[in-house]
C-alpha cells in the first residue's frame, strides 16, 4: 500500500510520515501532495495567533475539547520558533494539550519555524492540506504571534483568532503587528486577571466601537451599538470574547463564534474568495521558489559574485545587474524575463 492510501485509510503513522516529508520538502513531498490534493477542501482551518504567553496552546486544548464533545475530529499544528543561533527548536505546546492525549479523534503536530518566512508559510499550508486530506473536520493552527509571518499564515486559515491577554501590553502590540487586519475573532484570555475589561475596551476602541465619552455623540461607527458578527452590509465585525482557557470558561462562546464565522463565509460567498486567496498564495510561493532556484541553477559560478562586486564598486546599479542576469541565455531558464 502506498503511504497516501494508508493515510486515507486512517493510518496515523502514515499521516505523521507524510507530514515529515512535506515539512522537509523531501524528494517525495510534491508527488505526495499531488496525490492528496483531490481529497482536500473539507476541513475548516482555524488560525490561533497572539503574543507568547497569552494562552494560545491552552485555548487550543480547550477548543479542541469542545469540538470533540460534539463529535468533530481535530487536527492541530503548533508552531514554535527555531533558534536563529543553533537552528534547533524547543517545541513545548504539547505540555498544555495533555487532555487530548489518547483521543483517536485528535492529531497534534509540533512544527518549528525553521528558515525563511515564506518557507514557513509554505510548509504550514502544506501540512494543513495533509491533515485536511486525512479527514479532520477542524484544523487548529497555533502560531507565534510576531510580525509579518502572521499575515502570511492567516491567509492559510479560514478563521483567524487573535488572542490577547491583560498585562502584556498587547493593546499596543496588536496595532504594531497589524494583527487587527487579520483577526476574524478576538479572544481576551486570562479574563480571571485584572485588566481584561481594559483589554476588551482597547480592542473596541480600535474597532471604532467604544462608547463615546460623556458629552460626545456620534463619533465612531455606530458607537457602542453595532452587534458583532455578520453585518447588514455584508461585512464581518470581529467579536471579542473573554476566555479563561485554563478553566475552559468562555470557550463554548468562542467556539460558537468560530462556527458562526464559518457559516458567514459560506453564506456570503467569501469562502470561495478565501479559497482563491489560499490557492494564489500557495501557487505564488511555489512559483517564486522554483523561479529563483531555476535562475540560480542557470547562473555560472561567479556570475552572481561578479554582479555583486560590480554593484558594490558602483560600476553597475542593481536593477541593470538584475536585467543582465535575467536576460542571459541559460539552460533550463529560457528567457522568462526578457526585455524587447
Amino acid at each position: 500500500m502506498s503511504l497516501v492510501t494508508e493515510l486515507l485509510a486512517g493510518n496515523r503513522r502514515a499521516l505523521a510520515r507524510i507530514i515529515s516529508q512535506v515539512e522537509d520538502d523531501g524528494p517525495e513531498a510534491h508527488a505526495l501532495l499531488a496525490e492528496l490534493h483531490p481529497h482536500t477542501g473539507r476541513s475548516h482551518v482555524i488560525g490561533v495567533t497572539g503574543a507568547p504567553g497569552t494562552g494560545k496552546s491552552t485555548l487550543v486544548n480547550a477548543l479542541a475539547k469542545t469540538y470533540r464533545s460534539q463529535g468533530q475530529t481535530v487536527g492541530i499544528i503548533a508552531v514554535d520558533p527555531t533558534s536563529p543561533f543553533s537552528g534547533g527548536a524547543l517545541l513545548g505546546d504539547r505540555v498544555r494539550m495533555r487532555d487530548l492525549a489518547g483521543d483517536p479523534g485528535v492529531f497534534i503536530r509540533s512544527m518549528a519555524t525553521r528558515g525563511s518566512l515564506g518557507g514557513l508559510a509554505r510548509a504550514t499550508a502544506d501540512v494543513i492540506l495533509v491533515l485536511d486530506a486525512a479527514g479532520f473536520d477542524r484544523i487548529l493552527v497555533e502560531t507565534v504571534g510576531v510580525g509579518q509571518a502572521e499575515v502570511e499564515i492567516a491567509s492559510a486559515a479560514h478563521t483567524t483568532i487573535v488572542v490577547e491577554a491583560p498585562g502584556l501590553g498587547d493593546e499596543v502590540q496588536a496595532i504594531k503587528a497589524g494583527v487587527l487586519e487579520i483577526a476574524d475573532l478576538f479572544a481576551v484570555n486570562k479574563a480571571d486577571r485584572e485588566g481584561a475589561d481594559r483589554a476588551v475596551l482597547a480592542l473596541q476602541m480600535m474597532q471604532g466601537l467604544a462608547p463615546a465619552p460623556a458629552g460626545h455623540h456620534g463619533t465612531g461607527r455606530q458607537a457602542g451599538h453595532a452587534a458583532p458578527g455578520a453585518q447588514a452590509d455584508g461585512a464581518w465585525l470581529p467579536p471579542i470574547t473573554k476566555t479563561i482557557a485554563v478553566r475552559g470558561e468562555g470557550v463554548a462562546a468562542l467556539h460558537d463564534w468560530v462556527e458562526q464565522h464559518a457559516a458567514y463565509l459560506r453564506e456570503t460567498g467569501q469562502l470561495a474568495r478565501r479559497e482563491a486567496t489560499r490557492a494564489a498564495t500557495a501557487l505564488n510561493h511555489i512559483l517564486r521558489e522554483r523561479l529563483i532556484a531555476a535562475l540560480f541553477a542557470g547562473l555560472t559560478n561567479g556570475e552572481l559574485d561578479r554582479a555583486i562586486s560590480a554593484i558594490a564598486r558602483r560600476e553597475l546599479d542593481p536593477y541593470t545587474a538584475a536585467d543582465h542576469l535575467l536576460q542571459a541565455e541559460k539552460p533550463g531558464f529560457p528567457g522568462i524575463v526578457r526585455r524587447p
Binding site: S20, S83, F85, S86, G88, A89, L91, G92, F107, R109
Partner: peptide, 28 residues
C-alpha cells in the same frame, strides 16, 4: 539538544507510556 540544532518536542511531566508512544508517532 535544541542548542545542538535538534528539534525537541517537550511533553512535560507525568506521561504514561501510551502518551509517550502516541506523541512519538504523531511527531514522527
Amino acid at each position: 539538544l535544541r542548542d545542538a540544532g535538534m528539534e525537541v518536542i517537550y511533553t512535560g511531566i507525568r506521561q504514561t507510556p501510551e502518551m509517550i508512544a502516541e506523541a512519538a508517532l504523531q511527531e514522527d
